[in-house]
Nucleic acid binder design. Sequence first.
DNA 1: ACCTAATTTGAGTATACACTCAAATTAGAG
DNA 2: CTCTAATTTGAGTGTATACTCAAATTAGGT
Lengths: 199, 199
Amino acid sequence: MGAIRWPGYEGEAHVGRYQAGIETEARIIDATRSLLAEGGLEAATLKAICDRAEVRAGSFYNLFGSKEEAILQVVREAIDAVDPDPTHAGTDTVDDLVAAYIRFFEEEPQLARIYVLAGVAGEPSDNGSRRRFLRHHETRVERFADAMVRDTGLTEQDAEVQAELLLGALDGLAVRWALDTEFAFAAYAKLARERFGTE
Amino acid sequence: MGAIRWPGYEGEAHVGRYQAGIETEARIIDATRSLLAEGGLEAATLKAICDRAEVRAGSFYNLFGSKEEAILQVVREAIDAVDPDPTHAGTDTVDDLVAAYIRFFEEEPQLARIYVLAGVAGEPSDNGSRRRFLRHHETRVERFADAMVRDTGLTEQDAEVQAELLLGALDGLAVRWALDTEFAFAAYAKLARERFGTE
DNA sequence: ACCTAATTTGAGTATACACTCAAATTAGAG
DNA sequence: CTCTAATTTGAGTGTATACTCAAATTAGGT
Protein backbone atom coordinates (compact mmCIF):
# COMPACT_ATOMS: atom_id res chain seq x y z
CA MET A 1 0.00 0.00 0.00
CA GLY A 2 1.55 3.28 -1.10
CA ALA A 3 1.10 6.58 0.61
CA ILE A 4 -0.36 9.17 -1.69
CA ARG A 5 1.79 12.23 -1.40
CA TRP A 6 0.66 14.63 -4.08
CA PRO A 7 -2.02 17.28 -3.55
CA GLY A 8 -5.12 17.21 -5.71
CA TYR A 9 -5.87 13.52 -5.49
CA GLU A 10 -9.64 13.44 -6.02
CA GLY A 11 -9.74 17.16 -5.45
CA GLU A 12 -8.58 16.82 -1.85
CA ALA A 13 -5.25 17.48 -0.27
CA HIS A 14 -4.06 14.05 0.79
CA VAL A 15 -0.52 14.94 1.75
CA GLY A 16 0.88 12.24 4.00
CA ARG A 17 -2.10 9.92 3.68
CA TYR A 18 -1.69 6.19 3.55
CA GLN A 19 -3.80 4.02 1.28
CA ALA A 20 -5.08 2.20 4.36
CA GLY A 21 -6.60 5.37 5.83
CA ILE A 22 -8.13 6.34 2.50
CA GLU A 23 -9.79 2.95 2.22
CA THR A 24 -11.04 3.09 5.80
CA GLU A 25 -12.58 6.46 5.08
CA ALA A 26 -14.42 5.05 2.07
CA ARG A 27 -15.69 2.12 4.15
CA ILE A 28 -17.00 4.52 6.75
CA ILE A 29 -18.80 6.62 4.13
CA ASP A 30 -20.31 3.48 2.56
CA ALA A 31 -21.49 2.32 5.99
CA THR A 32 -22.96 5.73 6.78
CA ARG A 33 -24.77 5.85 3.44
CA SER A 34 -26.32 2.43 3.78
CA LEU A 35 -27.39 2.97 7.39
CA LEU A 36 -28.96 6.34 6.57
CA ALA A 37 -30.82 4.84 3.64
CA GLU A 38 -32.06 1.89 5.67
CA GLY A 39 -33.02 3.55 8.89
CA GLY A 40 -32.54 7.30 8.72
CA LEU A 41 -30.62 9.36 11.24
CA GLU A 42 -31.70 7.15 14.14
CA ALA A 43 -30.03 4.14 12.63
CA ALA A 44 -26.77 5.90 11.90
CA THR A 45 -25.26 5.76 15.37
CA LEU A 46 -21.52 5.83 15.72
CA LYS A 47 -21.58 2.22 16.91
CA ALA A 48 -23.62 1.06 13.93
CA ILE A 49 -21.38 2.91 11.48
CA CYS A 50 -18.20 1.53 13.03
CA ASP A 51 -19.60 -2.00 13.22
CA ARG A 52 -20.59 -1.95 9.59
CA ALA A 53 -17.31 -0.34 8.48
CA GLU A 54 -15.37 -2.77 10.72
CA VAL A 55 -13.41 -0.08 12.53
CA ARG A 56 -13.27 1.20 16.08
CA ALA A 57 -14.42 4.64 17.14
CA GLY A 58 -10.85 5.89 17.45
CA SER A 59 -10.29 5.17 13.76
CA PHE A 60 -13.49 6.99 12.88
CA TYR A 61 -12.32 10.08 14.76
CA ASN A 62 -8.90 9.93 13.20
CA LEU A 63 -10.63 10.48 9.86
CA PHE A 64 -13.68 12.58 10.66
CA GLY A 65 -14.07 15.44 13.11
CA SER A 66 -17.49 14.23 14.19
CA LYS A 67 -20.24 11.84 13.24
CA GLU A 68 -22.15 14.87 11.90
CA GLU A 69 -19.35 15.44 9.40
CA ALA A 70 -19.68 11.95 7.95
CA ILE A 71 -23.43 12.33 7.70
CA LEU A 72 -23.24 15.72 6.01
CA GLN A 73 -20.78 14.29 3.52
CA VAL A 74 -23.29 11.59 2.55
CA VAL A 75 -26.14 14.08 2.34
CA ARG A 76 -24.04 16.28 0.07
CA GLU A 77 -23.27 13.24 -2.03
CA ALA A 78 -27.01 12.66 -2.44
CA ILE A 79 -27.72 16.28 -3.33
CA ASP A 80 -24.86 16.33 -5.83
CA ALA A 81 -26.03 13.05 -7.37
CA VAL A 82 -29.51 14.35 -8.17
CA ASP A 83 -28.08 16.91 -10.58
CA PRO A 84 -27.43 15.78 -14.11
CA ASP A 85 -24.00 15.99 -15.64
CA PRO A 86 -22.89 19.63 -15.35
CA THR A 87 -21.27 19.45 -18.77
CA HIS A 88 -24.82 19.60 -20.15
CA ALA A 89 -25.42 22.90 -18.39
CA GLY A 90 -27.56 25.29 -20.43
CA THR A 91 -28.61 22.67 -22.95
CA ASP A 92 -30.94 20.37 -20.96
CA THR A 93 -34.47 19.84 -22.03
CA VAL A 94 -37.13 19.34 -19.38
CA ASP A 95 -37.40 15.77 -20.54
CA ASP A 96 -33.66 15.32 -19.99
CA LEU A 97 -34.00 16.68 -16.46
CA VAL A 98 -36.96 14.46 -15.63
CA ALA A 99 -35.20 11.46 -17.14
CA ALA A 100 -32.13 12.21 -15.03
CA TYR A 101 -34.27 12.39 -11.91
CA ILE A 102 -35.87 9.04 -12.74
CA ARG A 103 -32.46 7.50 -13.45
CA PHE A 104 -31.22 8.75 -10.08
CA PHE A 105 -34.01 6.85 -8.33
CA GLU A 106 -33.45 3.72 -10.36
CA GLU A 107 -29.67 3.67 -10.22
CA GLU A 108 -28.97 5.12 -6.77
CA PRO A 109 -31.83 4.02 -4.51
CA GLN A 110 -29.81 4.54 -1.34
CA LEU A 111 -28.88 8.09 -2.27
CA ALA A 112 -32.42 8.72 -3.49
CA ARG A 113 -33.79 7.71 -0.13
CA ILE A 114 -31.30 9.93 1.68
CA TYR A 115 -32.23 12.76 -0.67
CA VAL A 116 -35.89 12.41 0.25
CA LEU A 117 -35.05 12.39 3.95
CA ALA A 118 -32.78 15.42 3.59
CA GLY A 119 -35.69 17.36 2.08
CA VAL A 120 -37.61 17.19 5.31
CA ALA A 121 -35.23 16.17 8.00
CA GLY A 122 -33.38 19.49 8.14
CA GLU A 123 -34.79 21.17 11.17
CA PRO A 124 -35.27 24.83 12.05
CA SER A 125 -32.62 24.54 14.73
CA ASP A 126 -30.20 23.29 12.11
CA ASN A 127 -30.37 26.25 9.81
CA GLY A 128 -27.29 25.25 7.89
CA SER A 129 -28.67 22.09 6.35
CA ARG A 130 -32.16 23.49 5.93
CA ARG A 131 -30.94 26.54 4.10
CA ARG A 132 -28.60 24.49 1.98
CA PHE A 133 -31.40 22.24 0.87
CA LEU A 134 -33.67 25.18 0.15
CA ARG A 135 -30.96 26.77 -1.99
CA HIS A 136 -30.49 23.47 -3.76
CA HIS A 137 -34.21 23.35 -4.47
CA GLU A 138 -34.26 26.90 -5.78
CA THR A 139 -31.38 26.13 -8.11
CA ARG A 140 -33.29 23.16 -9.43
CA VAL A 141 -36.41 25.22 -10.00
CA GLU A 142 -34.32 27.70 -11.99
CA ARG A 143 -32.76 25.00 -14.06
CA PHE A 144 -36.13 23.43 -14.88
CA ALA A 145 -37.60 26.85 -15.63
CA ASP A 146 -34.72 27.73 -17.97
CA ALA A 147 -35.26 24.48 -19.83
CA MET A 148 -38.97 25.27 -20.13
CA VAL A 149 -38.24 28.72 -21.53
CA ARG A 150 -35.94 27.12 -24.12
CA ASP A 151 -38.39 24.29 -24.93
CA THR A 152 -41.65 26.15 -25.16
CA GLY A 153 -41.07 29.90 -25.17
CA LEU A 154 -42.96 30.33 -21.87
CA THR A 155 -42.25 33.60 -20.07
CA GLU A 156 -39.72 33.29 -17.29
CA GLN A 157 -42.42 33.97 -14.73
CA ASP A 158 -44.78 31.29 -16.04
CA ALA A 159 -41.89 28.87 -16.44
CA GLU A 160 -40.91 29.35 -12.82
CA VAL A 161 -44.43 28.53 -11.65
CA GLN A 162 -44.60 25.46 -13.86
CA ALA A 163 -41.16 24.35 -12.73
CA GLU A 164 -42.16 24.68 -9.09
CA LEU A 165 -45.28 22.61 -9.80
CA LEU A 166 -43.40 19.93 -11.73
CA LEU A 167 -40.68 19.65 -9.09
CA GLY A 168 -43.33 19.60 -6.37
CA ALA A 169 -45.03 16.70 -8.11
CA LEU A 170 -41.77 14.83 -8.72
CA ASP A 171 -40.64 15.31 -5.13
CA GLY A 172 -44.05 14.25 -3.80
CA LEU A 173 -43.95 11.12 -5.92
CA ALA A 174 -40.45 10.52 -4.54
CA VAL A 175 -41.82 10.67 -0.99
CA ARG A 176 -44.52 8.23 -2.07
CA TRP A 177 -41.83 5.89 -3.41
CA ALA A 178 -39.83 6.20 -0.19
CA LEU A 179 -42.96 5.08 1.68
CA ASP A 180 -43.31 1.98 -0.48
CA THR A 181 -40.54 1.19 -2.92
CA GLU A 182 -42.93 -0.99 -4.97
CA PHE A 183 -44.58 2.21 -6.14
CA ALA A 184 -43.95 2.73 -9.88
CA PHE A 185 -42.16 6.04 -9.48
CA ALA A 186 -40.77 6.24 -13.03
CA ALA A 187 -44.14 5.74 -14.71
CA TYR A 188 -45.86 8.30 -12.50
CA ALA A 189 -43.02 10.79 -12.88
CA LYS A 190 -43.43 10.62 -16.67
CA LEU A 191 -47.17 11.18 -16.36
CA ALA A 192 -46.57 14.17 -14.09
CA ARG A 193 -44.08 15.62 -16.55
CA GLU A 194 -46.81 15.70 -19.23
CA ARG A 195 -48.88 18.03 -17.10
CA PHE A 196 -46.50 20.90 -16.42
CA GLY A 197 -44.48 23.14 -18.64
CA THR A 198 -45.61 21.69 -21.97
CA GLU A 199 -47.58 24.59 -23.51
CA MET B 1 -61.77 20.96 40.27
CA GLY B 2 -64.18 18.08 39.96
CA ALA B 3 -63.22 14.52 39.24
CA ILE B 4 -64.86 13.27 36.11
CA ARG B 5 -66.46 10.02 36.99
CA TRP B 6 -68.55 9.00 34.02
CA PRO B 7 -67.31 6.89 31.11
CA GLY B 8 -67.48 8.34 27.64
CA TYR B 9 -66.04 11.76 28.36
CA GLU B 10 -64.42 12.67 25.02
CA GLY B 11 -64.67 9.08 23.97
CA GLU B 12 -62.29 7.89 26.68
CA ALA B 13 -62.94 6.09 29.91
CA HIS B 14 -61.93 8.58 32.60
CA VAL B 15 -63.18 6.72 35.65
CA GLY B 16 -61.45 8.09 38.75
CA ARG B 17 -59.64 10.87 36.90
CA TYR B 18 -59.18 14.26 38.42
CA GLN B 19 -59.47 17.44 36.39
CA ALA B 20 -55.89 18.26 37.33
CA GLY B 21 -54.56 15.12 35.66
CA ILE B 22 -56.67 15.66 32.59
CA GLU B 23 -55.32 19.19 32.21
CA THR B 24 -51.76 18.03 32.71
CA GLU B 25 -52.25 15.46 29.98
CA ALA B 26 -53.46 18.16 27.61
CA ARG B 27 -50.49 20.37 28.45
CA ILE B 28 -48.14 17.47 27.73
CA ILE B 29 -49.79 16.82 24.37
CA ASP B 30 -49.65 20.53 23.49
CA ALA B 31 -45.96 20.62 24.41
CA THR B 32 -45.25 17.49 22.39
CA ARG B 33 -47.08 18.87 19.36
CA SER B 34 -45.27 22.20 19.39
CA LEU B 35 -41.84 20.64 19.91
CA LEU B 36 -42.39 18.12 17.10
CA ALA B 37 -43.54 20.87 14.78
CA GLU B 38 -40.59 23.12 15.64
CA GLY B 39 -37.77 20.65 15.70
CA GLY B 40 -38.97 17.19 14.75
CA LEU B 41 -38.31 14.03 16.76
CA GLU B 42 -34.90 15.25 17.88
CA ALA B 43 -36.40 18.23 19.63
CA ALA B 44 -39.08 16.24 21.42
CA THR B 45 -36.95 14.88 24.26
CA LEU B 46 -38.64 14.01 27.49
CA LYS B 47 -36.87 16.90 29.19
CA ALA B 48 -38.03 19.39 26.56
CA ILE B 49 -41.62 18.13 26.73
CA CYS B 50 -41.72 18.27 30.53
CA ASP B 51 -40.10 21.70 30.65
CA ARG B 52 -42.59 23.11 28.18
CA ALA B 53 -45.55 21.42 29.87
CA GLU B 54 -44.23 22.50 33.30
CA VAL B 55 -44.30 19.02 34.81
CA ARG B 56 -41.70 16.57 36.09
CA ALA B 57 -40.93 13.25 34.42
CA GLY B 58 -42.83 11.35 37.09
CA SER B 59 -46.02 13.19 36.17
CA PHE B 60 -45.45 12.42 32.52
CA TYR B 61 -45.15 8.71 33.27
CA ASN B 62 -48.22 8.73 35.46
CA LEU B 63 -50.17 9.72 32.36
CA PHE B 64 -48.33 8.10 29.47
CA GLY B 65 -46.69 4.71 29.30
CA SER B 66 -43.76 6.07 27.32
CA LYS B 67 -42.61 9.11 25.43
CA GLU B 68 -43.33 7.15 22.25
CA GLU B 69 -46.98 6.97 23.24
CA ALA B 70 -47.29 10.74 23.52
CA ILE B 71 -45.60 11.21 20.17
CA LEU B 72 -47.79 8.64 18.44
CA GLN B 73 -50.84 10.35 19.84
CA VAL B 74 -49.77 13.64 18.25
CA VAL B 75 -48.93 11.96 14.94
CA ARG B 76 -52.36 10.32 14.95
CA GLU B 77 -53.90 13.70 15.66
CA ALA B 78 -52.15 15.09 12.57
CA ILE B 79 -53.23 12.18 10.37
CA ASP B 80 -56.82 12.46 11.62
CA ALA B 81 -56.81 16.22 11.08
CA VAL B 82 -55.89 15.97 7.40
CA ASP B 83 -59.13 14.16 6.67
CA PRO B 84 -62.19 16.24 6.03
CA ASP B 85 -65.26 15.89 8.17
CA PRO B 86 -66.32 12.22 7.98
CA THR B 87 -69.96 13.24 7.86
CA HIS B 88 -69.29 14.25 4.26
CA ALA B 89 -68.17 10.75 3.38
CA GLY B 90 -69.23 9.69 -0.09
CA THR B 91 -70.27 13.14 -1.20
CA ASP B 92 -66.97 15.04 -1.45
CA THR B 93 -65.90 16.58 -4.70
CA VAL B 94 -62.21 16.66 -5.55
CA ASP B 95 -62.33 20.40 -5.07
CA ASP B 96 -63.74 19.87 -1.55
CA LEU B 97 -60.89 17.49 -0.76
CA VAL B 98 -58.22 19.84 -2.09
CA ALA B 99 -59.81 22.76 -0.27
CA ALA B 100 -59.79 20.76 2.95
CA TYR B 101 -56.12 19.95 2.47
CA ILE B 102 -55.32 23.62 1.92
CA ARG B 103 -57.37 24.60 4.95
CA PHE B 104 -55.47 22.08 7.06
CA PHE B 105 -52.18 23.77 6.16
CA GLU B 106 -53.54 27.23 6.76
CA GLU B 107 -55.38 26.52 10.01
CA GLU B 108 -53.17 23.88 11.61
CA PRO B 109 -49.59 24.66 10.61
CA GLN B 110 -48.13 22.70 13.52
CA LEU B 111 -50.08 19.57 12.67
CA ALA B 112 -49.38 20.09 8.98
CA ARG B 113 -45.68 20.14 9.67
CA ILE B 114 -45.93 16.99 11.77
CA TYR B 115 -47.95 15.37 9.00
CA VAL B 116 -45.22 16.10 6.48
CA LEU B 117 -42.59 14.68 8.82
CA ALA B 118 -44.68 11.58 9.52
CA GLY B 119 -44.80 10.84 5.81
CA VAL B 120 -41.07 10.24 5.71
CA ALA B 121 -39.93 9.82 9.27
CA GLY B 122 -41.37 6.34 9.69
CA GLU B 123 -38.43 4.04 9.22
CA PRO B 124 -38.15 0.49 7.93
CA SER B 125 -37.28 -0.71 11.41
CA ASP B 126 -40.46 0.85 12.72
CA ASN B 127 -42.85 -1.04 10.54
CA GLY B 128 -45.86 -0.07 12.60
CA SER B 129 -45.82 3.65 11.87
CA ARG B 130 -44.61 3.24 8.31
CA ARG B 131 -47.39 0.80 7.47
CA ARG B 132 -49.95 2.95 9.18
CA PHE B 133 -48.97 5.96 7.13
CA LEU B 134 -48.95 3.94 3.93
CA ARG B 135 -52.47 2.70 4.70
CA HIS B 136 -53.54 6.25 5.42
CA HIS B 137 -52.14 7.33 2.07
CA GLU B 138 -53.89 4.50 0.24
CA THR B 139 -57.18 5.46 1.88
CA ARG B 140 -56.70 9.01 0.72
CA VAL B 141 -55.94 7.91 -2.83
CA GLU B 142 -59.18 5.89 -2.82
CA ARG B 143 -61.16 8.77 -1.52
CA PHE B 144 -59.79 11.19 -4.14
CA ALA B 145 -60.33 8.54 -6.86
CA ASP B 146 -63.95 7.96 -5.80
CA ALA B 147 -64.58 11.70 -5.94
CA MET B 148 -63.03 11.82 -9.45
CA VAL B 149 -65.25 8.98 -10.63
CA ARG B 150 -68.29 10.88 -9.31
CA ASP B 151 -67.13 14.24 -10.71
CA THR B 152 -65.99 13.23 -14.16
CA GLY B 153 -67.04 9.68 -14.95
CA LEU B 154 -63.40 8.53 -15.24
CA THR B 155 -62.93 4.78 -14.97
CA GLU B 156 -61.87 3.62 -11.54
CA GLN B 157 -58.48 2.65 -12.90
CA ASP B 158 -57.80 6.03 -14.51
CA ALA B 159 -59.16 7.82 -11.47
CA GLU B 160 -56.76 5.96 -9.23
CA VAL B 161 -53.78 7.01 -11.36
CA GLN B 162 -54.95 10.61 -11.42
CA ALA B 163 -55.57 10.55 -7.66
CA GLU B 164 -52.09 9.21 -7.03
CA LEU B 165 -50.64 11.99 -9.23
CA LEU B 166 -52.70 14.73 -7.61
CA LEU B 167 -51.87 13.57 -4.08
CA GLY B 168 -48.23 13.22 -5.08
CA ALA B 169 -48.23 16.79 -6.26
CA LEU B 170 -50.06 18.07 -3.18
CA ASP B 171 -47.76 16.20 -0.81
CA GLY B 172 -44.66 17.40 -2.70
CA LEU B 173 -45.87 20.97 -2.47
CA ALA B 174 -46.43 20.36 1.23
CA VAL B 175 -42.80 19.28 1.61
CA ARG B 176 -41.82 22.43 -0.27
CA TRP B 177 -43.87 24.51 2.17
CA ALA B 178 -42.30 22.74 5.15
CA LEU B 179 -38.90 23.74 3.75
CA ASP B 180 -39.89 27.39 3.56
CA THR B 181 -43.20 28.43 5.05
CA GLU B 182 -43.22 31.59 2.92
CA PHE B 183 -43.96 29.37 -0.07
CA ALA B 184 -47.49 30.04 -1.36
CA PHE B 185 -48.75 26.51 -0.83
CA ALA B 186 -52.45 27.24 -1.32
CA ALA B 187 -52.01 28.94 -4.69
CA TYR B 188 -49.77 26.17 -6.01
CA ALA B 189 -52.06 23.46 -4.67
CA LYS B 190 -54.96 24.96 -6.61
CA LEU B 191 -52.87 25.08 -9.78
CA ALA B 192 -51.89 21.44 -9.30
CA ARG B 193 -55.51 20.46 -8.83
CA GLU B 194 -56.31 21.84 -12.28
CA ARG B 195 -53.92 19.38 -13.90
CA PHE B 196 -55.17 16.05 -12.58
CA GLY B 197 -58.52 14.35 -12.65
CA THR B 198 -60.39 17.02 -14.58
CA GLU B 199 -61.19 15.26 -17.87
C1' DA C 1 16.13 -4.60 7.73
C1' DC C 2 15.44 -0.08 9.91
C1' DC C 3 13.01 3.99 10.88
C1' DT C 4 9.33 7.14 10.93
C1' DA C 5 4.70 8.37 9.96
C1' DA C 6 0.09 6.93 9.79
C1' DT C 7 -3.42 4.23 11.46
C1' DT C 8 -5.82 1.41 14.69
C1' DT C 9 -6.98 -0.39 19.03
C1' DG C 10 -8.74 -0.74 23.60
C1' DA C 11 -10.21 1.25 27.41
C1' DG C 12 -12.01 4.54 28.90
C1' DT C 13 -14.95 9.64 29.88
C1' DA C 14 -18.89 12.59 30.23
C1' DT C 15 -23.36 13.42 29.30
C1' DA C 16 -27.92 13.04 27.68
C1' DC C 17 -31.52 10.21 27.51
C1' DA C 18 -35.81 7.43 28.92
C1' DC C 19 -37.62 5.81 32.77
C1' DT C 20 -38.64 4.40 38.08
C1' DC C 21 -40.37 4.82 42.70
C1' DA C 22 -41.64 6.17 47.31
C1' DA C 23 -42.82 10.16 49.78
C1' DA C 24 -45.11 14.52 49.69
C1' DT C 25 -48.75 17.23 48.15
C1' DT C 26 -53.09 18.26 46.11
C1' DA C 27 -57.81 17.25 44.60
C1' DG C 28 -62.28 16.08 45.48
C1' DA C 29 -66.32 14.34 48.03
C1' DG C 30 -69.08 14.10 52.04
C1' DC D 1 -63.02 19.64 58.52
C1' DT D 2 -61.70 14.71 57.52
C1' DC D 3 -60.41 11.11 54.67
C1' DT D 4 -59.08 8.86 50.57
C1' DA D 5 -57.73 8.87 45.90
C1' DA D 6 -55.11 11.09 42.46
C1' DT D 7 -51.32 13.63 41.19
C1' DT D 8 -46.81 15.51 41.58
C1' DT D 9 -42.24 15.85 43.17
C1' DG D 10 -37.48 14.90 43.84
C1' DA D 11 -33.97 11.99 43.60
C1' DG D 12 -32.47 8.77 41.68
C1' DT D 13 -31.12 4.28 37.96
C1' DG D 14 -29.26 2.24 33.91
C1' DT D 15 -27.91 2.62 29.39
C1' DA D 16 -26.80 4.40 24.99
C1' DT D 17 -24.48 7.88 22.85
C1' DA D 18 -20.60 10.75 20.96
C1' DC D 19 -16.13 11.35 21.72
C1' DT D 20 -10.96 11.07 23.79
C1' DC D 21 -6.27 9.47 24.26
C1' DA D 22 -2.06 6.92 24.78
C1' DA D 23 -0.15 2.67 23.50
C1' DA D 24 0.19 -0.79 20.03
C1' DT D 25 0.35 -1.98 15.38
C1' DT D 26 0.74 -1.31 10.51
C1' DA D 27 2.16 1.14 6.32
C1' DG D 28 5.46 2.93 3.47
C1' DG D 29 10.05 4.45 1.92
C1' DT D 30 14.96 3.83 1.69
